[in-house]
Design a protein around this nucleic acid. Structure first.
Lengths: 145, 145
DNA sequence: AAAGTTGTAACATCGTTTGTTTCAACTTTC
DNA sequence: GAAAGTTGAAACAAACGATGTTACAACTTT
């Protein structure tokens, strides 16, 4: 089981928006070309990023823009925006443990805290990286090419 | 996107094997009853745990047993055994970033290290808990009931 | 020999992800 | 204000993966 490609696509999209800002209108069509992701999916992702307050888009007017400085957007913010639409947590539990079995009726209590800790560890690591770093690294590589 | 319920089911299964060891034959049918997971799925999970050297099962002879002390089995070992059958990593990348775009041809380089770090953070947290702790907590709750 | 169990394959079902088509509403530009 | 391009959104399609089901050969125990 894997975390959706929408997450990496979203980071790609945001990087493009910042890198090409001013140079050109960054439309969903352009982003579709750069990411290789269908333009409608791009618009969906942009919609989720907009709801999360990360980008600004307007119907009709082509061109997405960041709603915050890149230093204030972490990978966690992006992850949360596109990946965590429902609040079920990272781990899925088997749904029908048997309450008649002493293990079955307690396994949730025993595991839940540990699963949350693992999920938090992942999320905290994602909080450490900002879009500013991603963009800086990208620009640096481009210059060195 | 979520991590499969096979993981929590596997921990449940291992806990049962330890808790009921000696008292009864812990068959896939019994485990199916306790977990609420189909008996064939249970056997699949047991098969993966066997390949990982975590349990011992034999065709015909009913009853699974642990292949190691509970203190030497971490949640990470279980996660790895049942969840990481292919080696694609936790994050899925969008597949066709455009090499003609400077962002597209470098996004992998820029992100890969960070994604691995996030995955490692998750895995390291899972390494902190052993089956011994899960079993101890479970037994404690059962006694207090 | 009989009964119970595991391992495994083949198939079914369901939900999710991704892509596609379509179109109304909107903005920009001429 | 008309034309062209763009977004937002809905509805549908296709592909994939997770889980369940059925079936059965191989094996162990009694």
């Amino acid at each position: 089981m894997q975390i959706t490609s929408k997450f990496t696509a979203a980071v790609h999209i945001l990087t493009c928006i910042e890198v090409f800002d001013g140079e050109m209108r960054v439309t969903s069509d352009f982003l579709s070309g750069s990411t290789g992701v269908n333009a409608v999916i791009v618009r969906n992702v942009l919609g989720q990023l907009r709801e999360a307050g990360i980008v600004e888009t307007r119907q009709g007017s082509g061109g997405a823009h960041l709603a915050k400085p890149t230093s204030e957007i972490t990978l966690y913010d992006v992850y949360r925006a596109v990946e965590c639409t429902d609040d079920d947590g990272l781990f899925r539990f088997h749904e029908n443990p048997n309450a008649k079995c002493p293990v079955g009726r307690n396994i949730h209590k025993v595991m839940d805290g540990r699963l949350e800790a693992a999920q938090s560890a992942l999320e905290n690591e994602l909080k450490k990286t900002t879009l500013a770093e991603i963009v800086a690294d990208t620009k640096k590589i481009i210059e060195e090419e």
